[in-house]
Amino acid sequence: MRVLVTGATGFVGRHLVPALLDAGHDVVVFVREAGRYDGPADVEVVEGDIFEPETVEPAMVGVDAAYYLIHSMQSGGDFEARDRLAARNFINAADAAGVERVVYLGGLGEEHDQLSAHLRSRREVEHILASSSPELTTLRAAIIVGAGSASFDMVRQLAKRLPVMVTPQWVETRCQPIAIEDVVAYLVGVLDHPETAGETYEIGGPDVLTYREMLQRVGTQLGQSPRIVPVPVLTPRLSSYWIGLVTDVETGVARPLIEGLRNPVVVTDDRIRDIVDVEETPFDIAVERALLEERDSTTVPAETPTTTP
């Protein structure tokens, strides 16, 4: 199968491309600067910008399935409008080229829970992608655990740098994190199952934890025992400034992530487990692997402004 990957230089995309090659697919990557792409050599590289529709269309030629792994969270307060425009440009090009399937990685969260702007935008993108001819398969995930994940990196840095944390009440929110290896296995696996076309699935690891528990368990692996004191007066805005002061995560990224932490993100529909066989990775093992990868790498490429949830 000839497969297009957008967001190929982002956290999820960097893991997905080699897995698709291993599965026997012909892979096309859509990147903004072809000369700077350092992924596998066995791919076709198409240079373009998702916000310039005329550059998107050539990437779709002859493509059977296309992955949409783009977001504009780092662009600032206008990220929702940019997300809408990017999704429309993508799906219009896919429709015009006769692409049969689109696979999208979105975010968990129940719409009746008053989703944060970040999660609401992910859901809006999902609706846009579903509005055209290509059949959409959506996978919804919570925090993805791996070296280079912005959300996991925020948790790791907090657990490492702060022996005492004064946090908002979101530390008691429940979450179902998932290892990057498992996310990729599901993303690749749905292509082998035509029945997943037109469907939405929720994916998560085997552990459901509060953010407090995640911070404490990551801290344990880092040789720390962070003391967490939740207070009701610390707003998401103040929390994002606090995150920006004590971690390397930019405030523009931290704020939408922090606002999303108020929403429980737990799998309520696990039908995908009966379709794609994935041996789900326990949280502690996923953390151990992520920390080991970070230690073994001198630099972990940061997520680009238009990639992954």
Rank of each mutant, 00 (worst) to 15 (best):
L119I: 07
R227H: 11
I91C: 05
G146R: 03
G146C: 05
L292T: 14
A117S: 02
I144M: 15
S239Q: 02
V166E: 04
A81F: 08
Q169S: 15
E57Y: 11
A185C: 03
P177R: 15
V12M: 01
S239R: 01
L20Q: 04
H112M: 04
T137N: 07
V229E: 11
G148R: 08
V61D: 12
G198W: 01
F152H: 07
G48R: 10
A130P: 14
V27T: 08
T235R: 08
H127K: 05
A142C: 13
L158E: 13
T6K: 01
E47A: 14
G189F: 15
I285S: 07
A19Q: 06
R2E: 03
R161W: 12
L158Q: 05
L257P: 01
E181P: 00
P58C: 07
D192N: 13
E199V: 12
L119W: 00
L129G: 10
T281Q: 04
T299C: 09
R289S: 10
V28H: 14
R84H: 13
A159K: 00
E213T: 08
L20E: 06
S151G: 07
V43M: 05
T281N: 02
P206N: 07
T196A: 12
P206S: 06
V188A: 10
A159C: 04
V145D: 06
G109I: 01
D296S: 11
Y201G: 02
V183Q: 07
T304F: 02
L69F: 15
T210R: 08
A8Y: 00
I272S: 03
E47V: 03
E213V: 10
A147G: 10
I178A: 04
L16R: 05
G146K: 01
A142L: 09
L119A: 01
G205F: 00
S240I: 10
G106Q: 03
I144V: 15
R120L: 13
E126I: 01
S239A: 15
Y211E: 06
D296F: 12
A86G: 10
T55N: 09
E124M: 03
W242N: 10
I128F: 03
H71G: 12
T137A: 10
I258T: 11
V43F: 02
L20R: 00
